[in-house]
Amino acid sequence: MKKLMNEAVNYVDEVLDGLQLAHPDVFKVDGETGRMLRKTTPSTGRVAVVSGGGFGHLPIFAGYVGDGLLDACAVGDVFASPDMNPMLEAITHADDGNGVVCVVGNYGGDKMNFAMACEMAEMEDITAQQVIVSDDVASASADKAEKRRGVAGLVYVVKIAGAAAAEGRDLAAVVAATQKAADSCRSIGVALGSCVVPQAGKPTFEIADDEMEIGMGIHGEPGVSRTKLMPADALVAELMDHVLPELELKTGDKVSMLVNGLGATPNEELYILFRAAQSILKGKGIDLVQPLVGNYATSMEMAGASITVMKLDDDLQKLLAAPATNPFWKG
């Protein structure tokens, strides 16, 4: 393991501390648990949006606390769900009496703990509702879509939820927009090299120098196929073949697309992938709006990338374009 760190056990807390020290006007570490990151200046008089999940994916989840994005976020250990307590702290802190939307990736621990936190909040007379994000087409077939993992689509869903809340919509309307965003995203990743969980100290998986794994999850979960490295254009064609069919796009439909780096892949290569993906969309007569290229949902030092396509209607397009202020968000 080669990492710039101190004791592995302090890894997460030192990152959170660094975030609040570097951006004191945006981030504040809070809660009895010290695992709740919130906006330094809370918003009032509107629905709140929170999220939470395992750490090691910056900017998602905690990195997207900010105006027009998340109000607060529960932080777990690297690749491990937070327990219910920081989630409840995030919900109760963020609530201003108008209800809370919880954006949750489709992982057993995250869902179970958020469900408990929502029930506890309910006992304190706070209405908190979960929207589950399960955009990874490689993790289960379409007829078992409820088993799919949440990956980079979380970025879009957080952005839409935050924008809908900032606009002053009521809880039902924010939940509806957030759910629509979750339903409109499809993603797939490709991994070239492993990540290392600090407390594990060794690579999560083995992969040969000349191999790539298509469909690998953001914690190293097995993908759909392991192949020899192929040229970027051919790879993108295959990835888009997985992502696009379920969106049932027609000529003239609008989409946004996120070409996301998993941590160790340079921006240069992301733009090579983007170029190829853009050309495929153009060839199908699909209108690409507000593309995103960069590191938005990572897996520590995993090498590779993911492509997320979100089908847009006018409302989603407007919410995606709405202002958001945050050290990581680049719209």
């Binding site: 648990t33 250990d77 327990d83 408990m116």
Partner: peptide, 24 residues
């Protein structure tokens, strides 16, 4: 409810979460 919060403060084993769920 308070007991559930205290029990679930130990992350790790699903047993803690399940005890929290039953208490809730």
């Amino acid at each position: 409810m308070e007991a559930a919060k205290a029990m679930t403060k130990v992350s790790g084993s699903s047993f803690g979460t399940l005890m929290g769920i039953s208490l809730m």
